[in-house]
Design a protein around this nucleic acid. Structure first.
Lengths: 229, 229
DNA sequence: AATAATTATTGATAATTATCAATTTTGCTT
DNA sequence: AAGCAAAATTGATAATTATCAATAATTATT
């Protein structure tokens, strides 16, 4: 009896995911043929560089962000398997408009943009699924924009925690792979302010902190703070 | 000899636009069959309401924004003919995630979401063109997010002016249909600050102000201020 | 053209957030 | 386990922006 290795299982899940998107076996073979590993902290793509590839995250976690001149990034998305990264570069000026970095050792399938484009053009079901992803990305960006532009620090941090808990980790516990600085860049605030707001939230018993790990104890309270402005 | 009315001309241009997107005559008939007029200041769609329609702006100007609880909006896009509005609602939770208001008397074609979706599913060329629009929308939102989250007021205002001049009005002159408050909501600042920054820019001879109309005199200077942070 | 309503402007002040510097804690490497 | 590097924390201060209030200018209405 053959026992699957974690990698085999992961391969199977990826194939299932791609099947659900409407890809047939030859198409799946094409998009999964090139796989690259990234170490923690490595750049998966660099803002401004030539956008040759659409990327499918197979394993690990990434953060996508916009780089500012003064080393201030704005994280707009944390991604987990199996996410497609770089759709905003499918057409346009051929350059990545954002940077992407591995939060832990990660595996990414690279698909040449033209190849990806051809599959879309020949596969209606897949095109439709990709459009759904675009819709989601836009809605996510509206949320981020709303949080960052109109709110005060407490609400901003609550928004980030809610995002991480509900949308990303799907758990009350936010993984310690997320640093205070990540939360800062997600919230549009300075790291020191994150520390202060988290301390407040801990005092209010809204969250528990164990080293780098944050656990949400009272989601309702976070949501109230989020709405309060 | 028949003289075209402005409306006829506009119809013709709209049809040309839709042809270029890959729609055939019956499809064009379908998407242009319902036309609605909006007065200045009227809501074209309300954030949170049921998203029944995809909208094609035929005439006039609109602003799209995210509403905050405390009457603070964040404008993320100004639209001119012929733009498609509401693509982010094509799939998802069936509600508009943003509000949209007419900046002047405007005409909008309403296309039922399901109808629009069916056309996409049966027309690869159109699907591909729609995906281009999604890409552009995402890139625009990245720009806004970068401006609003990481910069100071001078840079933010410069970004807004550059956006309005280059992307929207395609002219050195920014139409007086844009109020100081609009610029504030586009920049993520208070209206009073806009007034002050504009006064600064005027003193620096970067812009000229004639009542509500702003003319850009030195685009390079604005771009330098924008980058400066 | 007169009046009302909206929008823009200005100054003063308060509130919020960023920055800087110093210290502690945590995680990683050997 | 020791030592090093990175990340987190804390306090003090400076900088930035929002808010409030009052007035002026512009636009819309009758």
């Amino acid at each position: 009896m053959k026992i699957f290795s974690p990698d085999d299982e992961n391969n199977k899940k990826l194939v299932d995911f791609l099947k659900k998107l409407g890809l047939n076996s030859p198409e799946i073979k094409i998009v999964t043929s090139t796989e690259i590993e990234f170490k923690k902290g490595e750049n998966v793509c660099k803002q401004g560089s030539f956008a040759s590839y659409i990327m499918i995250l197979k394993e690990g976690w990434l953060k996508s962000y916009i780089e500012n001149i003064h080393f201030k990034n704005t994280i707009f998305k944390i991604t987990k398997p199996f996410s497609i990264i770089g759709l905003s570069c499918l057409y346009g000026d051929n350059h990545y408009h954002f940077g992407c970095q591995a939060l832990m050792p990660s595996k990414v399938c690279l698909v040449e943009r033209t190849v990806f484009d051809n599959i879309i053009k020949g596969n209606n079901k897949f095109a439709s699924e990709i459009i759904k992803m675009y819709s989601n990305s836009l809605q996510n960006l509206y949320d981020r924009l709303n949080s960052i532009s109109n709110k005060q620090s407490l609400s901003k941090v609550c928004d980030s925690l809610i995002y991480l808990s509900e949308k990303i980790f799907e758990s009350d516990t936010i993984s310690p792979i997320i640093t205070r600085r990540d939360i800062a860049e997600l919230s549009g605030l300075a790291t020191e302010n994150i520390v202060r707001v988290l301390a407040e939230l801990k005092t209010a018993n809204a969250i528990a902190i164990d080293k780098k790990e944050i656990t949400i104890l009272d989601m309702d309270m976070l949501k109230r703070f989020s709405c309060f402005g």
